[in-house]
Write a protein that binds this DNA or RNA. Structure first.
Length: 320
DNA sequence: GTGTTTGTTATCAA
DNA sequence: CTTGATAACAAACA
């Protein structure tokens, strides 16, 4: 489940290899995963370069090099100028970049390409096949972009919730304004901003923190972790959170997101970075996925329930 | 066959 | 109109 730290990890890694590269081929293996569809998508991307990478919440943004419009200015019908490629991984999306120098074809069921020797940390129940092991493309590959220099970017998505989407500048602006609240770790995300998010709301604090239009980038894992760190029960209503608690929550969100980025995100099931490696924050989770275990803070057993329609982990004893 | 997993949106009720 | 809760989506697994 890629949330802000996972998407940011991918963005930073990809920026190094992709910026300045020209797209030389586009293959859509799953038509519903890309829009606009088919030939339009393809022709809009071909021969463009990635000039910049960005991220808003969990949305990855690639800026494309400008196209010469003078040649096509005759046409009276105004065509959209797709200057941005948006990628959302939703729950099971992966973006794997294979460098041009590396061979991916080969007889090995588990290619060595792109996987550092860190798979030793796999716990039981985390299927190895969900991480990237074998050759690419695989049966979950939905799209492939090939770049000058031979690099290839594979978009894998087991559940097909994720997407690649081309938009123009106006559409991007509209999406960003309409769908995203302040980002943790930015100047816009102040305790006062968080207070406004919670003020006079009868919705549960967990639901409010998950709402991307209120705060961008948090998902189920980091919300549970932040509420635990702040000592707040997920079922509390927004309006019930007192100023001192808001300050704690604000600090907890920033601290956890910062640490998670530093540790290259959390792998719980499908997330891997752009080289197919798992995130290291998994072992630092204190509540998510630990229902029934002893609370690291007080020793009481952690509960797992459902709040705001999502699996929710918390300590009844130290979260008030 | 049932229930569970979650990011986001659509739908519905209050 | 707003707010909040829930269903739906997709695919796989226990």
């Amino acid at each position: 489940m890629p949330e802000l730290p996972e998407v940011e990890t991918i963005r930073r890694d990809l920026a190094a290899g992709l910026v300045g590269r020209k797209i030389v081929s586009v293959d859509i293996l799953s038509p519903k995963s890309a829009s606009p569809s088919g030939a339009i998508f393809k022709s809009a991307l071909l021969r463009r370069r990635i000039t910049e990478t960005g991220r808003r919440g969990k949305l990855l943004i690639f800026r494309l090099s400008p196209i010469s419009r003078s040649s096509s200015s005759r046409s009276s019908s105004r065509r959209a100028v797709y200057d941005y490629l948006l990628i959302h991984l939703k729950m099971t999306g992966q973006l794997i970049y294979l460098d041009g120098r590396k061979k991916i074809a080969g007889g090995h069921s588990l290619s060595k390409a792109g996987r550092a020797p860190l798979s030793s940390g796999l716990s039981l129940g985390e299927s190895f096949s969900s991480a990237v092991g074998g050759d690419l493309p695989n049966k979950h590959t939905r799209a492939v972009l090939s770049f000058s220099g031979g690099g290839r970017l594979f978009f894998n998505d087991l559940r097909k919730f994720g997407y690649l989407k081309l938009v123009d500048q106006a559409e991007l602006n509209r999406l960003l304004v309409a769908n995203y609240g302040p980002e943790p770790l930015t100047a816009a995300f102040t305790p006062a901003a968080l207070a406004r998010v919670l003020a006079r709301k009868s919705a549960k604090v967990k639901a409010l923190l998950l709402d991307q239009t209120l705060i961008a980038g948090l998902g189920n894992i980091y919300v549970d972790e932040a509420l635990h760190a702040a000592g707040l029960r997920p079922q509390r209503t927004g309006a019930s959170i007192k100023p001192a608690e808001i300050k704690r929550l604000h600090g907890a969100i920033n601290r956890i997101i910062r640490r998670a980025i530093k540790h290259r995100g959390t792998t719980f099931s499908d997330y891997v970075d752009s080289r197919g490696r798992r995130g290291n924050f998994s072992r630092l989770l204190l509540v998510y996925g630990r229902g029934g275990e002893a609370c690291r803070n007080c020793g009481h057993p952690l509960l797992k329930t459902k709040v705001a329609g999502r699996g929710t982990h918390y300590c009844q004893y130290c979260q008030k």
